[in-house]
Nucleic acid binder design. Structure first.
Lengths: 252, 252
DNA sequence: TTAGTTATTGTCAAAGTGACGATAACCCTG
DNA sequence: CAGGGTTATCGTCACTTTGACAATAACTAA
């Protein structure tokens, strides 16, 4: 009803880039990996103000010729030193954070992404600080969310990322993206336990999950004594009926 | 590992807004409403190039002091002439579209939003073109997705919006946001039928949905002959176990 | 009053669930 | 190489949920 209400599409026809306030477009990454029964997130420590010395999600600018997802993959490699050529990684868009005051210096709009790194569940992928000075390290997610504060609105973004992953694991096989291509049901259950912060009963988990996986016919070498487990791969399928995430105590 | 790999947060400390290519930040809206057993989406017809005369989602620029969600609500009012003061409306972020070539003229990043308008299921909210020249009108979604093409990547955005709504209806009471505050189970089932493009059996739907709703104690006047139906309100709750969306034929 | 229409409840066989026990296959130690 | 510890997988059982559909109840219109 004001002059502003002119349609954006119409407006663009006569739009001069210089007319509008600059918006910096960035990506932030919630990078998850599982070890030793715990879900971990990759964080960097900030070197400069604001939020100097605080922990923050890795991220960076979206280049002029990139999509946000391309920028996310590039920044993941650059800021953590991960070799994405060999390491399977799942990247998906999470949400976009646009609060006009979320960065005190200027308008920064960040497209947050969720990245899942495959591990064998024992050793975290080695991450090192990129070419910048900030140090990169893994932090246990559930512990972090209870105690620590992160720079900017990154606490919220991390919480949203965890919520997305936890929710999607109810109706999809996305948890397998945190494991090698071939994995056992016990490994997969360990991922569920780590993300949901619970302890699922093994027998029932097997019964419900197995029909959604593909049996490779191979068996895992029983490293620790015990029967060898069948190795599965996970087709990118929907799980029906979905697995229920226990609300408080394990067991609905 | 090039100079670009410098951390974004670090980089911002010495960032000069003029240094970077301009990014136009916009919102696009997928506005849904149900009538007569069909899901409808609000579209405007473009007046100028590119995509002149094509159908497009309503949208517009994000102002310098607004969040994307605030801009979405404002544009919804401005472009469709809807009075949001009286009409209950649900708005949530959908996804952000960042392809560098999605607008041929310049870099336009659009934060798409899903908006659900409450109707009694019989009459669509009157929408009129805003102050711009474009005409706004309702279009049946399922028919549209099969046939027509939309401007820019709006076909994809619409598809994503429908997918989000359809998915969320499995495990939440969000479908009730397409109905007045108080509604009958038959009205709610009509929403499911319209969005999922299916026909759910009435008896079983009642059995599964009722425990998640709040009975007002009131009854609807049976307008068309038949027993009066109980009026419910929907607390913003999770549905557990979720409703299964039939894959092909009605009935799992 | 009666026929038509609709909401809600009931029924029943089949499938799914949580809890947990049984079995089998492996490793390690002695 | 025998036996104990460990682990994966399958089986069982009482209980719940499901899909399909029938039955009943409550209204309107004629």
């Amino acid at each position: 009803m004001t002059a502003d209400s002119q349609s954006a599409r119409e407006f663009l026809d006569s739009y001069d880039p210089g007319d509008y306030p600059a918006v910096a477009l960035t990506v932030d990454l919630v990078v998850f990996a599982v070890t030793n029964g715990a879900l971990n997130v990759a964080l960097v420590r900030r070197g400069g103000h604001p939020f100097k010395d605080a922990l923050a999600l890795p991220g960076g600018f979206v280049g002029p010729e990139e999509s946000a997802e391309q920028a996310a993959v590039r920044e993941l490699a650059e800021e953590t030193g991960l070799d994405l050529g060999s390491l399977p990684v799942h990247v998906e868009q999470l949400a976009t954070y646009t609060g006009p005051k979320r960065d005190p210096r200027m308008r920064v709009v960040s497209v947050a992404h969720l990245a899942l790194l495959a591990t064998d569940g024992r050793v975290l992928p080695g991450i090192a600080a990129g070419s910048d000075a900030a140090a990169a390290a893994w932090h246990p997610v559930h512990h972090l969310l209870r105690s620590s504060d992160l720079a900017f609105d990154h606490h919220q973004i991390l919480q949203d990322g965890l919520g997305r992953l936890a929710g999607k694991m109810e109706y999809s096989t996305v948890a397998a993206r945190l494991l090698p291509n071939e994995f056992t049901l016990t490994q997969l259950r360990a991922v569920y336990d780590a993300v949901w912060d619970t302890t699922l009963p093994a027998g029932n988990f097997t019964r419900k999950m197995m029909p959604h996986l593909t049996d490779t016919g191979r068996k895992s070498r029983a490293a620790t004594g015990g029967a060898p487990a069948a190795l599965f791969t996970a087709p990118d399928r929907h799980i029906h009926p979905p697995l229920a995430k226990p609300t408080t105590s394990p067991g609905r």
